[in-house]
Structure formats: C-alpha cells, structure tokens
C-alpha cells in the first residue's frame, strides 16, 4: 500500500482555498456515441452548497460520477476537465487518485447498499481513518466514536459492532457521512442522499448536511430532483435538462424568479400547500431527447423554430445568474402568468 500519510505535493496547498470547478464536461455513450451530458460547467467553493437539479436522465448523477472518475462501463467522458484549486484532477487520473475520498468525499443514494454487508460500521470507520489519517488502535476508535457522535448517532460502541443490515436507512446514511468526513475532506459530493429515505429522515439528513457544511466549512455539491431540498439548503443551483445546463444562479433568486421556462415548469409542477393553484405537470416525457436544438423544446410552450435548430448557449442575465434560452421569461412580476402559458 502506498504511504498515504505523505501529503501530495503542490496539490493540497493549492487546494486549501481552491474551488472545485467543472468545465465543459461532456459525456457520451461508448457504443452509440449518443451525448448524455454536454458542456456542463459550474464550480463549488468550500463553505457553500451547490445543488445540481434535474429530472431523471438529466445527467446530474453522471456529472457527479464523472467528477469522481467512476463513470459506469459503456459511458465515457469525451471532453472537459475537473479542476481543484487550479490542479487538473479529471477522472482522478494518475497521482490525483490520492485526493479521491480525501479532499473530495462522496455519499450516495442507497446508503445501506453503499456499505459492504460484510463490514461492521467500526471496520468501515477505522479503515477510513487509517487510509486517510493513519490513525489506528485506540486513537482510531476514539475518533470513530467522535465522528458517529458528530453525525448524531448515539451509543457509538454498540454501533461500531453493527453490520449494515442492522441499520435503518437514516442511520446508514449518517454512518456514510461519518465515514466521508473521517478524511476531513474539503468537498462533499452527495448524489441524491435522501431519495431512498422516508420523509422525516430526509429532513434530518438535510439538516445534518447543512449543519456540517457550516461547521466544517465544507463545499457541498448536492444532486437532487427535489426543489424543496434545494430551497432548504442550497446557496446556488444548477438546473440540468437533457444533459445541458438550463439555468444557474443564486438559489433563492432562481427559485423565486426563474428565467428559464423549464425551471418555471419544474416549480409549477411542485405541489405547494400554501398555494391555491394545483401543481401543473410538465407535458411530455423527459426521456424524449430531440435530435437537435434545445433539449427542452418538444415540451416547451414558448418554443419557436430557432429552438429546434441549435441549442442556446448559457448567457449571463444578472449577477451570478445564467440562462440557456432564446426566450427567457421576464423577471418577477409577469412570471406566474407566463408559467401557465408556457406549460400550456
């Protein structure tokens, strides 16, 4: 085994306050060559939560897997890079593999299945602590107990002896988070961390993530299809559709006054008990990917012939807000009326 206690040269010092940036990320199917993610770019700095939002098939999970260098077989990254504080860590190739799990940690959708069924919680945590911090023995046990305490799990001694099948989904996700934090990462990539959990547990895990993000100064990249989750904990949001960024910007601003018809439609499709209007489903199906033009145009009430020929590029339309649309919605006042028009 490599000596992991040695800090990788140059990388870490540059990383300390560096941002995690994805540029022009393009992912394609190996056999058909079909483009799954196209030109996606965004960045996360330590201390902020960025939400990557979209329906299934929007490419949000592929984006995270590409950042981790863990794309499934049959899918390849064809362009773009991932940078951490200026260093190229695309796919964690070469020496940068040592930063995976250490500077950039990740948690996933199905926490129970993400833990090896043969490993106790204690073995998992001790393994993480040894790999990333060379802690072992009593020191590792103490730190593991502290980590479990930090994610709100009582009775660490008992828990350390438990197997994943003995944990509830919420406990398993807390254990995953504790394991991810064992390395003291700067960034946490969370791929739908609450989707598999029941609603009350979801809220608890989100609170925990928000809490840790503040306490540890983590940069969190949160993949979700749930705009409620975004509203709750994200500082900034990146809305994906059909493998392209539709809209990006400050979370409150984007959710409050969406400028992209897709974002607006997504919001209108959300049930809201404080609103008299019933949720409006987006017509069509996210699976229908047009051969050309804006990926959303077949489902968009505002689409014109321009939308069918070439995809619009992401344009800056305000402070830290961008939209990829030929017909962006006007701001604030007229938005609500136009949503209904847009979604027909």
């Amino acid at each position: 085994m490599r000596d992991g206690s040695r800090v990788p040269p140059a990388d870490l010092s540059a990383v300390e306050d560096g941002r995690l940036a994805v540029r022009d990320l393009t992912i394609a199917a190996r056999d058909s060559g079909g483009i799954l993610v196209s030109g996606v770019a965004f960045s996360v700095v330590p201390g902020e939560t960025v939400a990557l939002v979209g329906e299934s098939g929007s490419g949000k999970s592929l984006t995270i897997l590409a950042m981790l260098g863990l794309l499934p077989g049959g899918v390849v990254q064809t362009a773009g890079d991932v940078r951490l504080g200026g260093s190229d860590i695309t796919g964690f190739a070469g020496d940068s593999i040592r930063l995976r799990g250490r500077v950039i940690a990740a948690i996933f959708q199905d926490p129970q299945a993400s833990l090896d069924p043969r490993w106790t919680v204690g073995r998992y945590l001790r393994d993480q602590l040894f790999r990333h911090r060379r802690l072992r023995g009593a020191a590792a046990d103490r730190e593991a107990a502290a980590l479990l305490d930090g994610v709100g799990l009582p009775q660490p001694e008992r828990l350390m002896k438990s197997y994943p099948h003995e944990l509830s989904g919420g406990m398993a996700q807390r254990v995953m988070i504790a394991g991810a934090l064992a390395a003291r990462p700067r960034f946490l990539l969370a791929d739908e961390p609450t989707t598999a959990l029941d609603v009350t547990t979801q809220a608890q895990i989100l609170d925990l993530l928000a809490d840790l993000q503040k306490r540890e100064g983590l940069g969190v990249l949160l993949v979700t299809h749930d705009l409620g989750v975004v509203a709750e904990i994200a500082h900034r949001v990146v809305v994906l559709y059909g493998g392209r960024i539709m809209e990006t910007g400050d979370a409150a601003r984007v959710l409050g006054h969406p400028r992209h018809p897709y974002t607006a439609a997504l919001l209108a499709a959300m049930p809201d008990i404080t609103d008299d209007m019933p949720p409006v489903a987006i017509p069509g199906h996210p699976g229908e990917r047009p051969a050309s033009g804006c990926p959303f145009h077949p489902r968009c009430g505002l689409a014109t012939s321009a939308c069918e020929t070439a995809p619009p590029s992401l344009r800056e339309i305000g402070p830290e807000q961008g939209v990829a649309c030929y017909h962006p919605l006007p701001s604030a006042a007229m938005t609500q009326g136009l949503i209904r028009y847009a979604v027909g």
Partner: peptide
C-alpha cells in the same frame, strides 16, 4: 463504487 469514492 462507494468504496472507490472513499479512496480505494
């Protein structure tokens, strides 16, 4: 996948 994401 999770083990590799954690650094293996």
């Amino acid at each position: 996948r999770a083990a590799m994401a954690a650094g293996e």
